[in-house]
Design a protein around this nucleic acid. Structure first.
Length: 510
RNA sequence: GGUCCCUUCGUCUAGGGGUUAGGACGCAAGAUUUUCAUUCUUGAAACAGGGGUUCGAUUCCCCUAGGGACUGCCA
């Protein structure tokens, strides 16, 4: 590779929230840039004036920020190659489009969208496909089929037009892709793409992308595989401008596929598979709400980690990586070619790993607001202790409550299945005896209490497991929770005895 | 339909001419914790098919099949 500075860009269009496929592309760009000591740039591709969505750009920025993908240059960050928003670069593109016209690589076309739609419909009816290409361009309304006078007259009259690329005939275009190797296309299968539209004085993606990557000195274009079909067009554009020898290198990332069914994951998949497709919760201008990883309780580190392993792997058996570790170990050569199906279960597992690895105190800080919302005001130490007791069994901070609510309030109902299995025979009566025993206890320590209860069980010839489960039922309302005597110690004598008495009174023996 | 891309357990993947084809998620069983979870151990589970090349192909080549992307005055 040359000595050229690595400069990569993430170039979303602000037509809505970013989805995790886009986030993954951003992440890989970031990792690649940082790995090579280069720059990570955000460029807003808002050349479609009709699809602008208010708030989308802010959403993109907030998402990157949440994930810790720090930008070196961008709309808000500025930089020596600005502006970084294409709608603010309007004046730049026109001359490049003109350059292509002048050199014969492009032409004016006056066909209206309606006319083209009609042609497409007509061809479809005849089971063929309409393409604006070498086979049809001479019979359509453009500067190739019209006389120079006619073209000039139409332009002068202010008739709206479009500038199309004149795809040359029968050229094999070979491009090198960093993940796929060489890819070859023949220009006969390509059409004359629109590069510029007079209606809003803006280029289309294709022109803007080439011009900006050139002007911003982008060294590597890392984008999704959905762009692979336009690679030959882009190469031809570099060729047409005479920039081919300094063209960026390309890497097309495999797609992220839906967990169920077929096809690539899309924004419209929303929450229907029970997991978020967006980094942050998104409320559309129409008021529709789609959930986000952040609001669902995912840690940003976990999201980065799980996304990194979708389409890339280190070649080792390590699966948990911090962002810094990823930067160190990332390489584009180890990116996979095939699409990866998103696995919601594994995503949760990743979050679990990060959650468990956080200190009890740190998690307690995150858990405390939830407890307060429920109306309790425990000390941070208490919450820290409780968090440590149950964190192994949850994937998300918000699940901590369902695993530990009984430390704060008595169960209001009891799991039927457990009642049926454990609350029978002379067990309820014996629980009453345990209550009486505990009431007289003088040393309120888990080990001590366990000893006393065990002695009572032995003396009364009860079954240890059965009694323990019944106690558990009475104290937490079900068959779950951490070590029982730890719970009892934390609950304190009054609360423990009162819960046992209440259970004996309230739960019908079966 | 056309063009291009892809194909190892259900999923994410390692591997790569000779391997008991490895790991992770999930699933199942067992152990331990005289209670729950954790943890541990074990198990089931894959080279899409057919042709070559080769002493030998899961690995290299070709074909078929399957999947995917693109096919807009969208990105």
């Amino acid at each position: 590779m040359s000595q050229r500075e690595v400069r990569v860009r993430f170039a979303p269009s602000p037509t809505g929230p970013l989805h995790i496929g886009g986030v993954r592309t951003a992440l890989f760009n970031y990792l690649f840039a940082k790995k090579h000591g280069g720059k990570f740039i955000l460029r807003i591709e808002d050349t479609d004036s009709t699809r602008f969505v208010p708030g989308a750009e802010a959403y993109i920025n907030e998402s990157l920020k949440w994930l810790g993908l720090t930008l070196d240059e961008g709309v808000a960050e500025g930089g020596p190659f600005g502006p970084y928003k294409q709608s603010e670069r309007k004046a730049i593109y026109k001359q490049y489009a003109q350059q292509l016209i002048d050199s014969g690589w492009a032409y004016y076309a006056f066909d209206t969208p309606e006319q083209l739609d009609a042609l497409r419909a007509q061809h479809e009816a005849e089971k063929s496909t309409f393409a604006y290409d070498i086979s049809t361009r001479n019979s359509l309304n453009n500067s190739l089929s019209l006389s120079d006078e006619e073209t000039k007259a139409r332009l002068l009259s202010g008739e709206s037009y479009v500038i199309r690329f004149k795809m040359p005939e029968n050229v094999d275009v070979t491009a090198r892709d960093l993940v796929r190797g060489e890819v070859t296309f023949n220009t006969n299968t390509l059409d004359d793409k629109v590069l510029y539209k007079s209606a809003d004085q803006l280029p289309t993606y294709h022109l803007a992308n080439i011009v900006d990557d050139r002007l911003m000195e982008i060294s590597h274009v890392i984008r999704g595989e959905e762009w692979l079909p336009s690679l030959p067009l882009h190469v031809m554009l570099y060729r047409a401008f005479g920039w081919e020898s300094e063209m960026p290198q390309f890497a097309h990332l495999p797609l992220i596929l839906k967990p169920s069914g077929k096809g690539k994951l899309s924004k419209r998949d929303g929450d229907k598979d029970g997991f978020p497709v967006f980094p942050l919760q998104y409320v559309s201008p129409e008021g529709e709400v789609a959930s986000g990883y952040r609001e669902s309780g995912y840690f940003p580190e976990a999201v980065n980690n799980l996304l990194a392993l979708l389409g890339w792997n280190s070649g080792t058996e390590q699966e948990i990586f911090s962002l810094d570790e990823l930067v160190n170990i990332f390489s584009i050569e180890r990116v996979n070619k095939s699409g990866a199906r998103f696995d919601p279960d594994k995503a949760k597992w990743f979050n679990h790993q990060y959650l468990v690895n956080k200190s009890d105190a740190e998690l307690a800080q995150l858990y405390l607001p939830i407890i307060r919302e429920k109306g309790f005001e425990p000390s941070l130490e208490t919450v820290t202790t409780i968090t440590g007791l149950v964190k192994e069994r949850v994937n998300f901070v918000q699940e901590l409550w369902e695993q530990s609510y009984f430390f704060f309030e008595a169960p209001s109902d009891y799991d039927d299945k457990v009642v049926k299995k454990r609350w029978k025979g002379d067990v309820p009566a014996f629980i009453g005896e345990v209550a009486a025993l505990l009431e007289t206890a003088t040393i309120w320590k888990a080990e001590e209490l366990k000893q006393q209860v065990s002695d009572l069980i032995t003396a009364k010839e009860q079954n240890f497991g059965g009694v323990m489960n019944a106690l558990r039922l009475a104290l937490v309302g079900g068959g779950f929770g951490p070590d029982l005597f730890t719970i009892i110690e934390l609950l304190g004598k009054n609360e423990t005895v009162s819960r046992l008495r209440k259970a004996v009174e309230v739960i019908p023996a079966s």
